[in-house]
Design a protein around this nucleic acid. Structure first.
Lengths: 226, 226
DNA sequence: CGATGAATTGACCGATGTCAAGTGGCGTGG
DNA sequence: CCACGCCACTTGACATCGGTCAATTCATCG
């Protein structure tokens, strides 16, 4: 149990005594697919670490467009920024799997961070990484075409939530055309056309529950803008 | 002198004794327009705080596109992420004005942060803000048209580097069409067309050294996607 | 076996990227 | 002080991508 906590980003490198204290202050919670952990605009009262399953982070723009920001996997936290500095959650986080989370009250988290400065360092590292990741994607968005971005997004998902099989890498997430469209910033029709072509060319294979990358190398070629 | 340091984001809320120690460890440097403080890809050895002037942060993508990430003004830092966690600077930072910076060696910064935990907190806040800002722009990019993004970018620049005059807000930065194109992710032709139209409609007025917003309200209407 | 929602496909059009030609302003050197 | 050349910018024509809508097919679940 503690071993698992030690593998999370935010509690990395803490000694087992500290982890014990931290864990005693947490609540564990099981959540069904489709259920929302936090909703955009609600007051940020809790901080979460995902123990099991996957969640998707979405945001609705002022004009009603939905954007899929990222997927969260085991060991990753969410709600940190909001709890530390904001009043409201900036995003909605929804379970896509059967999930299990650890939950801390926001005030408690501030106390823990004061008590264990290492957590502050970890938080810094998390933010720094997220910043770089976001920056990279921002740049992609500025300079690349939909097809390239789609290839890159799928490869990224494969890297963070895929597992290798004999035929290729499988992404065990229910990625609808709509989801993909919200990731790359287009509509379902454009995504559908591109995916159809890729399926025809036997680069990928999709069903309602997963995506199978048959020719990862070819996708990488599409993703890289050379 | 110390008062100025106290107004920077990273050294905010530190007591004057700490600021004194911190300042004694810094070097001050004058830099001419066009000169680069740091270059993308070089080892991240120094951390900077801009005392006077403005600098632009750019990044070159693997395929050679240049992206203008943001402008930096007095009191803002740069190089923090790179020095703390990275090996190389991820961006190039170039003076657009006559600039003055304070410089610290990277290792020194780590020591200072250990000694003054408040700096860690400040860094967290800076990253959190940058994250939210980047996220907001990422979302814009995903869902909005070039004209909207251009309006928003100009309004943002006005907010962070503009000053009010009788005729309207003036942005005292040499914003070429190329710069604007790199900010919104398009080419100079599209920018040129839009700006020409805006000048014709007397929304803005530009020359080589500045941009004048004549009808900010109209720009805000263009920027908001309703 | 129908009903429902997701996905596909085609047609169309507007936004934007691309290229070529021309204009204007600014600095430099004669 | 003028002429030239350079560079940023403008403008037009055109090609292409991608967004929008309508019609249809497909898959899944009662």
């Amino acid at each position: 149990m503690l071993a698992r906590l030690a593998k999370t980003q935010i509690f990395a490198n803490l000694d087992s005594h500290s982890l014990h204290v931290i864990e005693q202050n947490a609540h564990s919670k099981q959540v069904d697919p489709g259920h929302c952990f936090v909703r955009q605009g609600e007051p940020a009262l809790f901080f979460y670490v995902l123990k099991r399953g996957h969640a998707k982070v979405t945001q609705v723009t002022p004009d009603g467009h939905q954007v899929l920001v990222r997927y969260i996997g085991p060991g990753q936290e969410f709600g940190l920024v909001a709890v530390l500095s904001g009043y409201e959650y900036p995003t909605t986080v929804q379970a896509v799997d059967e999930c299990e989370v650890l939950v801390w009250a926001g005030e408690l988290l501030a106390q823990l961070m004061e008590r264990y400065p290492l957590m502050g360092f970890n938080a810094l590292r998390i933010f720094a990484e997220q910043n770089q990741e976001l920056q990279r994607r921002y740049q992609e968005l500025l300079t690349e075409r939909v097809e390239q971005r789609l290839a890159q997004s799928i490869l990224r998902l494969a890297q963070q939530a895929g597992h290798r099989t004999a035929e290729g890498t499988v992404i065990d997430l229910p990625l609808s055309r709509e989801d993909l469209a919200e990731i790359v910033g287009t509509d379902i029709f454009v995504v559908s056309r591109i995916m159809s072509r890729w399926e025809q060319d036997e680069l990928v294979q999709t069903d309602r529950k997963s995506v199978l990358l048959l020719q990862q190398a070819a996708l990488e070629r599409l993703a890289s803008p050379i």
